[in-house]
């Protein structure tokens, strides 16, 4: 549901005002991951990760390349079990992909033989949307993503940024309660990134889903989220956890003009620089 604003859409303190759910959306307890290579050598990628993400919370994860951000999302999505510790989504131990979790991979994973339209349709098919709602809903998403003219194109004839938007469209079509997004704006130019970031904030403020958003872009992380988790590498651990106390609702661009925004970015930059 992208249009049709809810009455509380403009509330500044949405997450505080909502009644607390029985379980946090995501809870990681002592999660660790080792990969064993062909020679039998063990590579510890994640170590003692404890993390809680509340319902409706927007959490960004930043950290150096190879620190295990994508691996962490795979554990939460139930695609790959951790070596140690446990993952809970909505209070249930994750052993297989839990319901209502949508994952946007770092690499755009579109069906190469399916049109833009059909790729987005997969999200609707898999969340049980009735068939007759497909056409209007996909039309709406294509509009939103600026892909209207490309609905019958195959992914191979789209640019990288357009493919990423299609993948985002599929995720939005699936409309999960928890969005796992692995550098979703990585291939976008500054302008499209701005537009998509705005759109994501708008959708999030309307629907108030939980988001775990991996990025390399600290400004993006601070601008979007309620919390920024900074990870360190070898092995990947949570180094710091910053609460982003910028006002909501935010405009993804204008928020950058606030002194507090600068401060937060500066602090996080310095934190990462100390590595």
């Amino acid at each position: 549901m992208i249009d049709g604003a809810r009455p509380d859409a403009g509330d500044l303190t949405l997450s505080a005002a909502r009644p607390k759910a029985a379980h946090p959306r995501v809870r990681l307890e002592g999660v660790g991951k080792d990969f064993v290579d062909k020679k039998g050598a063990t590579l510890t990628v994640l170590e003692s990760i404890d993390l809680t993400v509340e319902e409706g919370e927007f959490v960004a994860i930043v950290g150096p390349s190879g620190c295990g951000k994508s691996t962490l999302l795979r554990h939460i999505s139930g695609l790959m079990p951790p070596t140690r510790g446990s993952v809970f989504v909505d209070g249930a131990l994750v052993t297989e992909p839990p319901p209502d979790v949508g994952f946007m991979f770092q690499r755009d994973t579109l069906l190469p033989w399916a049109s833009v339209y059909d790729n987005i349709r997969v999200g609707l098919q898999l969340n049980g949307t009735p068939q007759d709602a497909f056409e209007p809903r996909i039309g709406q998403l294509l509009d939103l993503l600026g892909l209207k003219a490309f609905r019958d194109f195959l992914p191979s004839s789209l640019s990288g940024g357009m493919r990423q938007r299609v993948a985002l469209g599929r995720l939005l079509a699936y409309a999960p309660a928890l969005y796992l997004m692995d550098e979703p704006f990585g291939a976008l130019d500054a302008m499209t990134k701005m537009a998509m970031g705005r759109e994501l904030l708008r959708i999030w403020s309307l629907e108030h889903k939980s988001v775990i958003f991996v990025t390399h872009d600290i400004e993006e992380a601070v601008g979007l989220s309620d919390r920024v988790i900074v990870m360190s590498a070898h092995p990947g651990r949570i180094k710091s956890d910053y609460r982003i106390d910028l006002p909501r609702p935010r405009d993804f661009r204008e928020v950058r003009l606030l002194p507090r925004f600068r401060d937060l970015c500066e602090t996080i930059w310095r934190d990462i620089g100390l590595e």
């Binding site: 695609l79 949508g102 690499r107 994973t109 069906l111 997969v122 898999l126």
Partner: peptide
């Protein structure tokens, strides 16, 4: 492409759906 299969699995697609929409094509 294993990522395509994983992506479908993350949305709890049934094996039949994955076979028909990913593996067969």
């Amino acid at each position: 492409d294993q990522d395509l299969v994983d992506l479908m699995r993350s949305m709890r697609a049934k094996p039949g759906f994955i076979a028909w929409r990913v593996q067969f094509p």
